[in-house]
């Protein structure tokens, strides 16, 4: 049976237990969120002992060689000596905060030391007590700050704290950036499809601004879906961008069209589509061979659309998917 040494204590790893399980079961607080090997918030560093390939999957090479690993994916085969990964954390300050609609909070973070990222990647936001959640970056590196769109969930610890308690000037930490969902700028003529639900718009908005700013030539089609009209946001901004850039098309869509919302739609003088977003995509765009796609938000939609696009002829390596997994607790 493998053991792990952490802060001077030694724990036995039981059968089918991960390093994260072992530490949590022994009352050690380790920040974690998705417990699926995706969010990277449970990263720890092994100073002694060898790591399995699976426990380092998705980490940057520079982190791998230093012994960082995902504790939720680590079923150790030998004894490990591990330390926390606090040196990867970057201090940030909340410098702006407002509601984008009734349940999406916008916050702007200023980082206190160098931080390089692409719009569309995600970071882990860490509160002083270790509470950690992943959010996508909606702003560009040139802005020297990080914009996040945070969906306020009924029992969301981080989102409710951010919306009700955190004030301007509040200090937090971030880790990252993580993920390959961003604009690479290598194929300027390639048509781009972006599909997001809810705050899946955050990375897409960042990627869109990046692509337009880099003078992308191919068509860009952005579908943003929500349950109903009040779930959409940045509508005016996106319609303005669609007016300004002839290669950019914006399709807000809702699953249900409620009568009291028709007035709001009329005021906008713009069309909001009604129906399932994946169907709208295929109704609107007939041929997608050779396209690149970015899919963000609801996991079911992201996985299903990924498959549908692949079957429609989009190469799998041209599909960048960012499924927003719920946190484990």
């Amino acid at each position: 049976m493998a053991t792990i040494k952490y802060k001077g204590e030694v724990f036995s790893v039981k059968v089918n237990e991960t390093v994260l399980d072992t530490l949590l079961n022994n009352g050690i607080a380790v920040k974690n969120s998705c417990r699926s090997g995706v969010c990277q918030s449970c990263v720890l560093k092994a100073e002694k002992g060898s790591l399995t390939e699976k426990s380092q999957q998705g980490l940057k090479d520079t982190l791998k060689t230093q012994g960082y690993f995902l504790s939720c994916m680590s079923y150790p085969e030998n004894d490990l000596e591990i330390v926390s990964s606090t040196e990867l954390q970057i201090p940030v300050t909340i410098i702006d905060k407002k509601m984008l609609n009734s349940d999406v909070l916008y916050i702007k973070l200023k980082y206190e030391k160098d931080f390089s990222f692409y719009a569309g990647q995600f970071i882990n936001l860490i509160r002083n007590d270790g509470l950690t959640r992943s959010y996508s970056i909606a702003s560009l590196p040139s802005e020297k700050s990080i914009d996040l769109h945070i969906r306020i969930l009924p029992s969301g610890q981080m989102s409710n704290w951010l919306s009700s308690n955190a004030s301007l000037g509040e200090k937090l930490y971030i880790e990252g950036p993580i993920g390959d969902c961003f604009y690479s700028g290598d194929k300027k003529e390639q048509p781009l499809l972006m599909v997001g639900t809810g705050t899946g718009l955050a990375p897409l908005y960042g990627i869109l601004c990046d692509a337009l700013g880099q003078n992308h030539q191919g068509e860009i089609h952005l579908f943003h879906g929500a349950l109903n009209f009040s779930g959409l946001y940045l509508i005016k901004e996106l319609f303005l961008l669609a007016e300004k850039y002839s290669n950019f098309y914006y399709y807000p869509s809702v699953l249900k069209n409620e009568i009291e919302e028709v007035n709001q739609l009329n005021q906008l003088n713009q069309e909001v589509k009604v129906g399932a977003i994946d169907k709208l995509v295929f109704q609107t765009i007939k041929k997608m061979k050779g396209w690149r796609a970015f899919l963000c938000g609801n996991p079911e939609l992201v996985y299903s659309l990924k498959k549908q696009l692949f079957l429609a002829g989009v190469s799998l390596k041209e599909i960048y998917a960012d499924a927003f997994l719920p946190s484990a607790k």
Binding site: K307, F310, L311, G313, S315, L316, K317
Partner: peptide, 14 residues
Amino acid sequence: VDMAVENFYRKVLT
């Protein structure tokens, strides 16, 4: 080979 694999899986999945 990559193209063959993609085409193959499109067939398999349908």
